[in-house]
Every structure is written in structure tokens, then in C-alpha cells.
Design a protein around this nucleic acid. Structure first.
Length: 464
RNA sequence: GGUCCCUUCGUCUAGCGGUCAGGACAUCGGCCUUUCACGUCGGUAACGCGGGUUCGAUUCCCGCAGGGAUCACCA
């Protein structure tokens, strides 16, 4: 156990997206690597947009990815009393003040400032105000106006900004609830977070938050800002670039280990290595190898990784997953062939579980009709003889192993004088209804004697 | 627009003063083959630009250009 304490702090205003997942993953990996503590905190100070459904969706996605946390989830909405007391503390110490400017006034000022080329920041109207009228107010933090704020980012290096660039942030809304930039400081400090790792888009917040740590008498933690994930057009990844929700990938038939592997390699590397199990990652992950520039999300590479994990995955486990999909489509798998055997015939030809389920369907449902072109080509009068031979030899088998099946086919080839190239397609159409399937001996073996003979007979009968 | 950050093949990246600039995805060819795939062999493809520093810059420094982030009573 080390002193490292990191956290993932999503706001429950939607599903867990790709970018958030990567941030969570990095935090998780570092915590595990350093044997530190990974805290989950739900940032729900935006009461308008936060929902319980979103919390559940995020938790579910993290669970699917295998990102477990040691503490939490903590909800900021449960901690309002703490925030309140901290606001009072800052008010008393003179580090904060009441601001009576209305949003309308502020917007107008901002607009005017922008128009005249100035900085659209708060002008400090109420900063030195001493009266306290009986009117709605927000509380603002008194940001130092001189000097500069600097910190050493664990990923980006030294970052510094002149304090004069900063304005006085609102820390408590008119409604009395606190804002993000304030509670994040309190929570990270109170939860003993030693390293704040979050998205790049928070860099600018960091320099505003540091003075708050100081005003509150907290120790300032370390920071690490991970670069953004972009779409193919180099714009911030969004829905128009395709699926951005982690769980979307689950329904598209992706394996969690593929997504984890892809996400970690987007922005992090370990020499020339491409394939990492979670165990590898916990062993090898380090902030030193995290890149500083934004990365483009590449669905093709993710697909390739998924293909890899399907190819190398445990047939039993994949079978369970495929069975689930099939059942979801109303396919009864319980009295069909052994699922793991089915999976083995498909592992090298499916890139996703969804594809695999499609490819597996015929094992459980005999073809209702035959592909028209395929039937005219491979299920015509001249094929009838071969079909009958097949039925004879395969039907006569006492055992139905791969070798037995192979031998039966050999016998048919010998008796008919036809090569496998002439027989295979016919069998394929008869058994699967189409022209694409796993290797024909595998299909026959896995499908089993009864089903094979029945389908062959049906095909033979269909030839008029 | 201000501020901050970033910049190696189309994409993800290795590189940490001297390399034929490496790998992976994608792409293009060949091979394998009972369909579709898998596999396999090989090819195309990058250091944004301009100045320095240095015997020598992809690598260090400074400009420029381009890209991103942020400037809310959102997080």
C-alpha cells in the first residue's frame, strides 16, 4: 500500500463516454500499479442535469470494463454542509465575497467586453463592496490579482499563468449550492487525493483552483492532465463521430479487454508492444509514457483488437456471450450443438460478438429457405446423386468425430469421382442455407449427425 | 480575440544529438485455400516551416504556421 490516492470524478449527466473511460482507466491503472487507492466520486452539483440513471450507467460501464474502485462512490450532493461551512470560512477570512450582480448584468458586460475586444471576465464590481443588501447573491472567490500561478503537471510539465488573467470565480450560486471549481478542491483535499488526474480540458481550471487550496489551508496535490481524444476530423470526439458511449461498444459486440487495450494505447505506449492484458497494464503502466498531444480515435484499430481478443478468447466464455445474444434474438440454443464448439469454428472469422452470433445462427436453426443463387448453382438436379451419397455415408457413421466425417467425405469423393470443391458448396448450402460458413468438415462435425442428415435430406427433397 | 497546451507515415506511436527514422492499424500486391475468413510474405507512406546551438539535429533553444483546450450561477 502506497500513499498514492487518485480518483475518477464523473458528472452524472449522461453515459460514460470513451474519453471519461480512458481517464478512469489511467487512474485505475496507476492506483493498482502503485498499490495506491482509487476513489470514485460522483460530481452531481448540477442538480438540473444530474440523474440517477446516469450514475447507474456510469457504474455499469466501469464494472464492464473491469475498473474497480477502493472507496466510494461518494456523492457531492451528500456533502453540501461541508461546502457551506467552507464558503463561510472563506467569507470570514476575506477570501471570498458576496456578489449581487445578476446574470443578466454579467452577460451584458461580457458581451460588451467581447465586442470592444476586451477580456470577457468579471470586472470585480462587488469585490470591495462592504454593504450587504437584502438581495439575491452569489459568492465569489477572491483570486489573487498579482503574481502568477504555476504547477508542475506530471504529464505536461510546468504550466504557469499570470493571475491577472484570472477573474473571481463563483463558488456558490444564488440558489445556495456550490459550483464545481469549488467543491472539486474541497473534495480532493478532504479525500486526501494526492494526484489529480483528469482530462486536458481542466488545465485552465487548475490554476484557478490552486489559490483555493491555499486559501483553505489545504496542501496542493499533484496534477496530471491527460490529452483529449479527437474524432477523425481532429475535432473533440462527439456523437457525430460515431458511438461514444462505452456501453454502445458492448452492444456492438466488443469485448471489454479490447476497449481497454485500445484506450490505453491511445496516449500511452510501452515500446513496440500492442497487446496488453489488464495484468500487463497494471505491471507496466506509468505516467512517464503518457503522451502530451491529443489523439484521434481510430475505430479500425479498436476493431482489430477486438478481432484479436475474439480469436484468442476462451471458447466457453465467448460461447456464453454469444448464447446471450442469440437468445436475445429469440434463437433457442439449449438443444443445439455445444456452444464452445460452435465458437471455435467461428473465432477466426468474426470481428465482433455480433458477427459471431450471426455466423452461429444456422447451427441452431435449420435453413428455412436457400439462398436463391446458391441453390440454382449448388442444389440442382446434378447434385442430387452426391447428396444421396453423402446421406448414405454420413448417416452410416457409428461415431461422428472430425476424422469420421473426413473419411466419409473421402469415400463420397471416391465413389462420385468428384473433388471436394464440387461437393463442399452443395453441402454448405444444404446445411446453412448460404455460401458462407466455417470449414465444411467443422460445420458437419459440430452440427452433429442427426441434424446433418436431416438437412441433407431436406435439401435433396427440395430439388425437383 | 486573450490565455494555456500540442506538432514523427492517413491513424496510434517508438525515438530521449550520429538510426537505411522502428512497430501497429489501415492500404496495396503475392502466396495459402472447399466458401468467407485466418494466416503468411512483401510494398507504398512521416520528422509542419524558418532561424539558431553543435563537428552533427527528428532529438536542445527561439520565432512562425497549423491544431486543440478554455474564457458559464456546466462539470
Amino acid at each position: 500500500m502506497s500513499d498514492l490516492r487518485v480518483r475518477f470524478a464523473p458528472s452524472p449527466t449522461g453515459y460514460l463516454h470513451i474519453g471519461g473511460a480512458r481517464t478512469a482507466l489511467f487512474n485505475f491503472l496507476l492506483a493498482r500499479k502503485e498499490q495506491g487507492t482509487f476513489v470514485l466520486r460522483i460530481e452531481d452539483t448540477d442538480v438540473e442535469r444530474s440523474t440517477q440513471e446516469s450514475v447507474d450507467a456510469i457504474l455499469q460501464a466501469m464494472d464492464w470494463l473491469g475498473l474497480s474502485y477502493d472507496e466510494g462512490p461518494f456523492y457531492q450532493s451528500d456533502r453540501y454542509d461541508l461546502y457551506k461551512s467552507k464558503v463561510s470560512e472563506l467569507l470570514e477570512k476575506g477570501h471570498a465575497y458576496r456578489c449581487y450582480c445578476t446574470s443578466d448584468e454579467l452577460n451584458a458586460k461580457r458581451e460588451e467586453a467581447t465586442k470592444s475586444g476586451g477580456h470577457p471576465r468579471y470586472d470585480g464590481t462587488c469585490r470591495e463592496r462592504i454593504d450587504q443588501p437584502d438581495a439575491p447573491f452569489v459568492v465569489r472567490f477572491k483570486t489573487p490579482q498579482e503574481g502568477s500561478a504555476a504547477f508542475v503537471d506530471r504529464i505536461k510539465g510546468t504550466i504557469s499563468v499570470e493571475n491577472a488573467e484570472l477573474d473571481d470565480l463563483i463558488i456558490q450560486r444564488t440558489a445556495g449550492n456550490p459550483t464545481y471549481n469549488f467543491v472539486v478542491v474541497i473534495d480532493d483535499a478532504e479525500m486526501g487525493i494526492t494526484l489529480v488526474m483528469r482530462g486536458d480540458d481542466h488545465v485552465n481550471n487548475t490554476v484557478r483552483q490552486i489559490p483555493m487550496y491555499e486559501a483553505l489551508g489545504y496542501e496542493v496535490p499533484e496534477f496530471a492532465h491527460v490529452p483529449m481524444i479527437l474524432g477523425a476530423d481532429k475535432k473533440r470526439l462527439s456523437k457525430r463521430h460515431g458511438a461514444t458511449s462505452v456501453m454502445d461498444y458492448k452492444v456492438m459486440g466488443y469485448l471489454p479487454e479490447a476497449l481497454v487495450n485500445y484506450l490505453v494505447r491511445l496516449g500511452w505506449s510501452c515500446g513496440d508492444e500492442e497487446i496488453f492484458s489488464m495484468t500487463d497494464l497494471i505491471d507496466k503502466f506509468s505516467l512517464d509514457n503518457v503522451g502530451r498531444s491529443a489523439g484521434v480515435f481510430n475505430p479500425e484499430k479498436l476493431l482489430w483488437l477486438n478481432e484479436h481478443y475474439i480469436k484468442t478468447g476462451d471458447p466457453e466464455r465467448l460461447g456464453g456471450l454469444v448464447a446471450e445474444l442469440l437468445e436475445g434474438q429469440g434463437v433457442v440454443v439449449s438443444d443445439g450443438p455445444d456452444m464452445a464448439s460452435v465458437v471455435k469454428t467461428l473465432q477466426e472469422r468474426a470481428k465482433t460478438l455480433v458477427e459471431m452470433a450471426e455466423g452461429a445462427r444456422f447451427y441452431f436453426e435449420a435453413p428455412i429457405s436457400y439462398d436463391e443463387d446458391a441453390a440454382t448453382k449448388f442444389l440442382n438436379a446434378e447434385k442430387r446423386g452426391v447428396l444421396e451419397l453423402l446421406i448414405k455415408h454420413l448417416g452410416a457413421l457409428a461415431d461422428f468425430t472430425f476424422e469420421d466425417v473426413e473419411n466419409a467425405f473421402k469415400a463420397v469423393m471416391e465413389e462420385s469421382g468428384l473433388k471436394l470443391g464440387k461437393i463442399g458448396p452443395t453441402v454448405r448450402v444444404a446445411l446453412t442455407g448460404g455460401t458462407v460458413s466455417p470449414s465444411i468438415y467443422d460445420v458437419v462435425t459440430v452440427l452433429g449427425q442427426d441434424a446433418v442428415v436431416t438437412r441433407l435430406q431436406k435439401a435433396s427433397a427440395s430439388i425437383s
